[in-house]
Nucleic acid binder design. Structure first.
Lengths: 227, 227
DNA sequence: CTTTGTGAAGCTCTTCACAGCT
DNA sequence: AGCTGTGAAGAGCTTCACAAAG
């Protein structure tokens, strides 16, 4: 159905624009530590790998800065993005699966600075839960739902073996999780929440296909459809 | 920066379709180990999180199977995708940066089965290069260009500290690398090769923004999109 | 009847181009 | 001059809907 309601709803920002704005924000944050105080749309575009037009359009989805004609003020633009995309709120996250990758993530210490608090780790192996030395509380996997609910955890990184992935995802969902970063090669069935997949093998395959197709493309002529 | 060169007409497969086909392939591979020999477009769609229409359209980009009307034969469809997207060739990959994440990836043993051979690891810390016990050859970072060239390595996983990321990426590029999976939060400037970014913080931010915007939007649930 | 394959319609995102500001 | 903000045009992807096959 059409959007019948035109109260004061901001017009919808394309999902892909949100991704770019996230990237942009990250870049602006780093930039703000240097001495550059202003930046143009084309410089931002060069940096995050898109066009100046797209950068300006994306910013305009947020309502634009109020400074037409002048280059963007770095801190001001960062603040605008943070506000509109709700990056201001701190969010709680957990890690499920404490194997090599999972524990590496658990010990990664930059989340706090970026607005994310790792408040729980889970593993089905009680041994790991008891022996891993960390200040982040660890729990056995059967407590996922309970803890996610209790601590109002919004984000999870899933690093379990592929066969446990769907089951853990379901526990997370029952706990009310809002987003999962899926490090397993499992293809999660969850149409309720947002999932971001970062399977290296999958990335390898996609990258291979991309450069392979490029190569075929630049070589010109495609033969008929038969094969 | 449009190349104004329309020399050959070639049906281009949309990049996003390539991504979906990669995912589909992965799913079909797993499925082929079970006893299901045939599958419909809607079942595939359910699984990889897209519509039956899109699945069929994507398959048609490859020229379609030659079996209109019948459900897809799993192995046949997998073979078709593998062939058209060049998944048949084995590809060499390396890991740059042998910290917690990097070494976890180095010890991950499923690549071989999936057509990727990890043939080198690099770290600027000579100690790590000498002490890590693995059958994969390790080298100091200054040899990146040389080894990538010598061994014709096509793919790299980048897991170095953020400040070294751009430098390492440039060495990889000079060595002729074709794709980088970037685990750092650096935004790599490389318009020559394909880069896939898997920064957790970035994913967290993008996910937060997505569910936050959804909440503000209040529109009845559309969903099922993920990346 | 069910299911694929695919032109064509429909829709969303990107690019253009220019008004208006500095 | 250079730059942003943004409707409008354009391109690209998704969805539709139906012919052909099983």
């Amino acid at each position: 159905m059409d959007a019948v309601n035109y109260s004061h709803v901001m017009k919808k920002i394309p999902e892909i624009a949100i991704m770019r704005l996230s990237k942009m924000y990250q870049f602006l944050l780093r930039l703000s530590e240097s001495k550059e105080s202003h930046i143009s749309s084309s410089e931002i575009g060069d940096y995050i790998g898109t066009s100046a037009n797209t950068v300006r359009k994306d910013v305009s989805y947020l309502g634009g800065t109020q400074t037409t004609g002048a280059r963007y003020e770095v801190t001001r633009l960062a603040a605008l993005i943070a506000e509109k995309l709700a990056f201001t709120a701190r969010r709680k996250a957990c890690v499920v699966g404490l194997g090599k990758i999972g524990s590496a993530i658990l010990f990664y210490d930059r989340f706090e600075k970026q607005g994310f608090d790792l408040v729980a780790g889970f593993d089905s192996n009680i041994n790991k839960v008891e022996t891993l030395k960390t200040k982040i509380p660890l729990y056995p996997s059967h407590m996922i739902e309970e803890i996610v609910k209790r601590d109002a955890i919004e984000l999870a990184v899933l690093c379990v073996p592929v066969d446990s992935a769907q089951g853990c995802a379901e526990r997370l969902m029952r706990g009310g999780i809002k987003g999962i970063v899926n490090y397993t090669s499992a293809i999660l069935k969850t149409n309720l929440i947002h999932v971001s997949n970062v399977d290296i093998t999958g990335e390898f395959r996609a990258l291979s296909a991309l450069f392979e197709i490029d190569r075929q493309g630049t070589q010109g002529g495609n033969d008929g459809k038969s094969l």
